[in-house]
Write a protein that binds this DNA or RNA. Sequence first.
DNA 1: TAAACGAATGAACAGTCATTCATTTCTGAG
DNA 2: CTCAGAAATGAATGACTGTTCATTCGTTTA
Lengths: 199, 199
Amino acid sequence: MAEEHATKQFIRNAARRLFAERGYNAVSMRDIAGAIGKQPGGIYNHFPSKQTILVDLMEENLTRAHAAAIAPLPDTDPVARLEAFVRGHVKHNIENPDDIFIAYMELRSLEAEGAAQIMSKRNAYEAALRAILRDGQKSGAFTFADPAIHARAILSMLGGVTVWYRDTGAQSPAVVAENYVQAVLQSVGVPYSAPTKGQ
Amino acid sequence: MAEEHATKQFIRNAARRLFAERGYNAVSMRDIAGAIGKQPGGIYNHFPSKQTILVDLMEENLTRAHAAAIAPLPDTDPVARLEAFVRGHVKHNIENPDDIFIAYMELRSLEAEGAAQIMSKRNAYEAALRAILRDGQKSGAFTFADPAIHARAILSMLGGVTVWYRDTGAQSPAVVAENYVQAVLQSVGVPYSAPTKGQ
DNA sequence: TAAACGAATGAACAGTCATTCATTTCTGAG
DNA sequence: CTCAGAAATGAATGACTGTTCATTCGTTTA
């Protein structure tokens, strides 16, 4: 529980915003320093390299994604688990658009060491969804051909939320989550109609 | 129909491969020149700038995507049109993975002028899918809440194909397309079972 | 108050970038 | 064979890159 200088968090916040906005390669250490009103050299008192900032951001995001979508899953039937997964995932995506965008776009900006670390965490997350799909397929609740393909199709669909959610401030997160719950459940062959809202 | 020097196409091909592999910002004009065994200065005989190469690639891709997924749509019921759209879209994605990847990842590398041009073509493509969804919703064939959200959810799902298709050479394009047709049709509430292949 | 130490400065370093350009080489028409 | 114009060269330009470092500043401990 090492005490952390406030500047370190300022650097994280500025880097997150800038990486998401322009892309890792298009952001310079001078940009990050300028965004927090500091000189570039000072960043190296808190992070050993630019690459380390990126890995730090991705790592933290995956930890929180797991806590939001995987950890609190009920131990009940596949339909309830898939629905809870979608809600947790969409909620996390909507609440952390910059982190999600970076996680998706900057995988190839990772150098070997960080890449292995991040990919391993990522795979664990995807495996959790695959397990739900396989259970539902085995029990006859779900209808689809290939669990691996379908897991990726679902994650792609859900991952798209942040690509466009900024633009359309119109819908509330709850409404968006509702749409995705329906889309995902129907995509595995489970009929679904919204619970409260008319129609 | 201006005669085009062969070098111009070599530049396009090299740039496409490199942009997809490392990202626009991580590729230098020297890289592109080196990939075709030329000197960097010579590229400027064919393209006025690095940015122009990117816009050229994206423009061409959108033209071919339209020809593959929108232009040949039948004038029949929404279910048949949606199915045909998915098949055309997935086929185009699988056959042009580098172009699709660039179109998706490098939107923010576009400068103002090119961005407007590309976004306009992109929007037209998305609108064509929205029209199908609205028709199906109106006729009662489809079940979902919001056509705009659902159109984007579908495009996100389909766009994910190329993110992972390289890795899994296992499935044939036809099998993959079949999986996506089922996922998309079921996502709009239309029951679907594969036509020939057993179960 | 004094010593100590992390944080911040801002100049400097070596390298890379897109682009320009005078020059040379290639190619095809007359 | 000539010669014009396109294509290619390769060195040069000026701007920008991540990182280093001697130095100064600020704050906390003794």
